[in-house]
């Protein structure tokens, strides 16, 4: 089975729609949303509604730190993120709030763990940006495969047969082996606000039969997403960064 893994949509409806269409064309039979549906972008209500619909159809949806902050207020947020989350908070409908409030922090199925930040202490929202953090997460859980988001930068970490931890930066659109019986932690890039220098939306495509995963890159209508951010009166940089993927 092919599973689409969508992290960090951040209220970017254009990017979400482009990725969903792309994943459908790739034969993804299951959707997993790895948290941060809202924050930064201009369509928190529309994105939440879309994902809620998909959840009703069986998609797995997890909570991210921005989803939490939209309900409880920003803690340890940058100025930009805090400004955006306060605006988001004023936009959310009661339905959207209910939906976000009910999201679980992680989900396990078969040999896979899905979580927004990482596996060792998901609610501390630790970023997996290096091998040390990846090792902490891998050693804290039993799952063979961990899929997370949160950093907005694609990365793959693996534990070798001699317990060494290797780090790899996945190239776009290329199926990589998550070799059995080794353990892997895959950090998906962001659907709605990529920060790895590539402005194309990023989502993960997992083939469970072959145990392979690809970081797909999808072009989307950045101009419209950015124009909406400006129209909403959100900080200009949140619009600008979409064009450069930074």
């Amino acid at each position: 089975m092919r599973i689409a893994l969508l992290a960090d949509i951040h209220a970017n409806l254009e990017a979400l729609d482009a990725c969903l269409a792309h994943a459908a064309a790739q034969g993804a039979g299951r959707l997993v949303f790895l948290g941060d549906l809202v924050g930064y972008g201009a369509n928190p209500v529309e994105v939440t509604a879309r994902v809620r619909e998909l959840a009703a159809g069986g998609a797995i949806v997890l909570r991210g730190n921005h989803d939490e902050a939209a309900l409880t207020g920003p803690h340890n947020f940058s100025k930009l993120a805090a400004a955006a989350i306060r605006w988001t908070s004023t936009q959310l409908t009661p339905d959207a709030r209910d939906f976000l409030a009910g999201l679980p922090i992680s989900h396990e199925e078969e040999d896979r763990l899905y979580v927004h930040s990482e596996g060792s202490d998901p609610e501390r929202w630790i970023y997996v940006t290096d091998a040390t953090a990846a090792r902490v997460s891998l050693e804290a859980t039993e799952a063979r495969l961990t899929f997370c988001g949160h950093t907005h930068s694609p990365a793959l970490f693996g534990l070798t047969a001699t317990e060494k931890l290797v780090a790899h930066r996945p190239a776009p659109d290329l199926m990589l082996p998550l070799l059995q019986p080794r353990r892997w932690l895959a950090v998906m890039g962001a659907v709605g606000q990529p920060r790895d220098g590539n402005p194309a939306a990023c989502y993960g495509l997992l083939d469970t039969g072959a145990s392979e995963c690809a970081w797909m890159r999808v072009p989307y209508d950045i101009a419209t997403a950015a124009q909406k951010i400006r129209a909403a009166g959100l900080p200009e940089f949140l619009a600008e960064r979409l064009f450069t993927g930074t």
């Binding site: 060494k164 931890l165 290797v166 190239a171 990589l176």
Partner: peptide, 10 residues
Amino acid sequence: AMLPDLMEEE
């Protein structure tokens, strides 16, 4: 080039 280098840390 495209795959993780398992031997890197040996």
